[in-house]
Computed example of a mutant assay.
Amino acid sequence: MSAAFWGGNTEGTKGALQTLRDAPFGQILLWLVAFGFVCYGIWRFIAAYFDLENRGDEEKGMFQRLALVVTGLIHVGLGVAMASLALGVGGSSDGGGASDWTAQVLQMPGGKWIVGIAALGILGAGVHYVIKGWKKKYKRYIQNNEMTQKLEPLLRWGFVSYGIVLAIVGVFLGFAAMNSDPSSAMGVGGALEYIRGLTGGQVLLGVTALGIIGFGIENFVEARYRIVPGVGHSSDIRSMAQAAKAKAKTEARSVSAG
């Protein structure tokens, strides 16, 4: 948002965290974020082991539970990386992180395939978030109340915006794999810079920034109001999807009665 309205460089995750580290009480905040990532990773392990998302024991369900374990490992790794940054051994924030690791992987046996698979995974995740936001699929697991209803437009755009950014990262990573050119790879900061370079980019960047803020708010909403299928909850609690369905039925009966 700052880059859109006041100029300057767009920042990726690492650069943003280093800015946080240098802010007042930044070290404490960075340690809290690192701890949060590790806790989130552990939560993914617990959700996979006890099947708290009701994925089941069939082939598809087991694959989805394995994906929870993989994302758990990734987040624990991110937490460790943030702890290293808090200790002052996290390296520079020159924005070359994506290109650096892509170059390292491309040098490995089958490196192009590894990078290509990673690109497809990131692109797929981006498309998933866009669809999830556009079709409002998040409503199925968020409690319906006055707060979530008011925030829904921001939640929806948050998913779509985050998905667009991820898709851009995935596409350019794919170019890096196809051309064996690590310089084509980019992280979140590079994707945001690409958006700013488009026609009307300043406005697009500002709108995307608002969406990413919305995605952050969505995470806060989930932390407080998410309905976990495998955990018992009050029968009075309804999801946003259930409330919308009940409202549609009531309106349909009213039209029929009229």
Score class of each variant (00 low, 15 high):
7 G>D: 05
7 G>C: 05
10 T>S: 10
14 K>Q: 15
18 Q>F: 15
21 R>L: 15
23 A>H: 14
40 Y>E: 05
42 I>D: 13
49 Y>I: 11
56 G>K: 02
61 G>H: 04
63 F>C: 00
64 Q>A: 07
78 L>H: 10
82 M>Q: 11
86 A>T: 07
87 L>G: 12
89 V>Y: 13
89 V>E: 15
92 S>Y: 12
103 A>W: 11
103 A>P: 01
112 K>V: 12
117 I>W: 09
117 I>L: 15
117 I>V: 14
119 A>D: 05
120 L>C: 11
124 G>M: 04
129 Y>I: 00
132 K>D: 02
135 K>W: 02
136 K>M: 03
136 K>C: 05
144 N>Y: 04
145 N>L: 12
150 K>Q: 10
161 S>A: 15
163 G>T: 02
168 I>S: 00
173 L>R: 02
175 F>Q: 15
184 S>E: 09
189 G>Q: 12
199 T>P: 00
200 G>T: 06
205 L>Y: 06
211 G>E: 01
212 I>G: 05
215 F>D: 03
218 E>G: 03
218 E>Y: 08
223 A>G: 10
226 R>E: 11
236 D>P: 00
238 R>C: 07
241 A>K: 01
245 K>T: 11
251 E>H: 03
253 R>I: 02
253 R>G: 03
255 V>G: 13
257 A>G: 08
